[in-house]
Design a protein around this nucleic acid. Structure first.
Length: 434
RNA sequence: GGAGGGAUGGCAGAGCGGACGAAUGCACAGCUCUUGAAAAGCUGCGAGGUGCGAGCCUCCGUGGGUUCGAAUCCCACUCCCUCCGCCA
């Protein structure tokens, strides 16, 4: 969440900044008003509390001196004040809850450099790459034999079985088989090899507590997007960002430990409630998928470098996989709620003839750290301050799988995978029908 | 699932109804001494809220309760340890 102090000191600046992403000023005003009420009520309650404590001390003294009559009198006064104090405290708590809830629902303040815009059409393309770019190739190619969507290739080669996936779990739960399944495993091994040990490899739990989901901003606002296990009140993670951000929840780190970087391969679960009916064929949008994530806790000064490093790593992998891609600087209207600045990586896939989002590299400033209460003690001494969090996918496999299969399709219908994966596939880069 | 033990500051650990936000040690920071370092000595040292400020308030796993007053007593829950049962 954003800093309540910023809201108190310069509400207009906060409103203007949030207005860039379409937040109604009235929503901000409601929080400011509740905050003023809360503070006033809290003062009242605390003054009463202070009197109760003073009286209680005097009761103790009177007892020690054997002055029972005085003790009884003080006791009675304290009791009356105590009742009053409890009532006032309850009022203060009511206002506090309103402030807290309001803050949890407000999105992050966008970075100054984030481009203005209302939606995905306003995102700014900052870079485009394709194999052979240096050799004067004009752009990504789309050859005749590559114009087949991956679900048809997957069926023909028996490496993707959407029908049987649906039999088990419903639509949008893919089932990979044979070389298709092996390809996923190879991609994960390939990615972890590229980033570990610079990024420490983590295998976190993928079923988490409500607090863990709140820390990243996935709750309470986006409850409908997540799978919830009611019996145990646990949530299936939508991304490894969720457990990684909470790994050091409530801790004070040392500045010399930063940046603290992690990579994790996990399944990710998304209900995709807001996009029912879109991209229902193939792997473009699925409820369960595997993804390798890169994550960092940093100092405020180190955050942009950390973000640049994750973006560079994502790009390098796409180049190694020989997939054309572009980098988008997300506009304020398309930014995720917790993010201050996000760069998306989109790989081009010739079968469906689309740019597919395969990574989203975000800088959250201290928005998530405040929710998760992760701080660091500056090396120069002084009060602990909030860390910054940065993360990005490296990468999301279903869409990479789709792009690799569509890109690698040969005129004879077989698929040839990029050389970089050879060590992870036992040298077997050709996929053909069994 | 059953029985027992535990949870206190960065760490270890005392306190078990009355001035306790909490002894002590370690760690850490500053100073003294020293050519420098070590050792020794002195001083400081949890987090947060609120107030212009002196200050006041909150936090001893979490949530309730008892009491004039709770780290301390009671109840529930969570987590950790030991043992039994079950299980990949």
């Amino acid at each position: 969440m954003i800093d309540i102090r910023a809201l108190r000191e310069d509400p207009d600046a906060v409103k203007a900044a949030l207005g860039r992403r379409g937040v109604d000023g009235a929503e901000v005003d409601a929080v400011i008003e509740a905050d003023a009420i809360w503070r006033a009520r809290q003062r009242t309650a605390e003054e009463l509390r202070s009197e109760v404590k003073a009286l209680s001390r005097d009761v103790g003294l009177a007892m020690k001196e054997g002055d029972t009559a005085r003790a009884d009198e003080l006791r009675e006064r304290s009791r009356v004040l105590g009742d009053e104090e409890r009532a006032r405290a309850a009022e203060a708590e009511e206002a506090e809850t309103r402030v807290r809830t309001g803050l949890l629902y407000l999105p992050n303040i966008p970075a100054d450099d984030a481009p203005d815009g209302e939606g995905e059409d306003d995102n700014v393309e900052v870079r485009r790459w394709w194999p052979g770019q240096d050799l004067d190739r004009p752009g990504p190619q789309r050859l005749e034999h590559q114009q087949v969507p991956h679900w048809e290739i997957g069926e023909a080669l028996q490496i993707l079985d959407m029908e049987r996936g649906a039999r088990l779990s419903g639509s949008m739960f893919p089932l990979y088989r044979g070389p298709g399944a092996r390809l996923l495993r190879a991609l994960t091994a390939f990615a972890i090899d590229r980033h570990s040990p610079t990024y420490e490899e983590i295998r976190p739990p993928t079923v988490v507590l409500t607090d863990t989901m709140i820390s990243t901003g996935h709750l309470p606002k986006f409850e409908d997007d997540a799978y919830h296990i009611e019996r145990d009140d646990l949530w299936l993670i939508p991304t490894a960002e969720v457990p990684l951000t909470s790994m050091h929840r409530g801790e004070i780190l040392e500045e010399n430990e930063l940046p603290m970087r992690f990579t994790a391969s996990t399944p990710c679960y998304r209900r995709e409630a807001g996009s029912a009916g879109r991209d229902t064929r193939g792997l473009l949008r699925v409820h369960e998928f595997d993804k390798v994530e890169l994550f960092a806790y940093t100092t405020p000064e180190g955050a942009l470098d950390a973000q640049a490093d994750i973006l560079r790593r994502g790009e390098t992998m796409l180049q190694e996989l020989e997939l054309p891609y572009r980098v988008l600087d997300l506009c304020t209207g398309d930014l995720g709620g917790s993010s201050a600045r996000t760069f998306d990586l989109e790989a081009y896939s010739p079968g469906v003839d689309r740019w597919l989002e395969v990574s989203s590299v975000s800088w959250f400033r201290d928005y998530q750290a405040r929710r998760a209460n992760v701080r660091f003690r500056p090396a120069s001494g002084g009060q602990p301050q909030l860390v910054h969090t940065v993360n990005g996918s490296a990468l999301a496999w279903p869409r990479i799988w789709a792009a690799l299969v569509e890109t690698g399709r040969q005129p004879d219908g077989t698929v040839v995978l990029p050389e970089a994966l050879a060590p992870y596939l036992g040298g077997e880069l050709l996929i053909k029908a069994p």
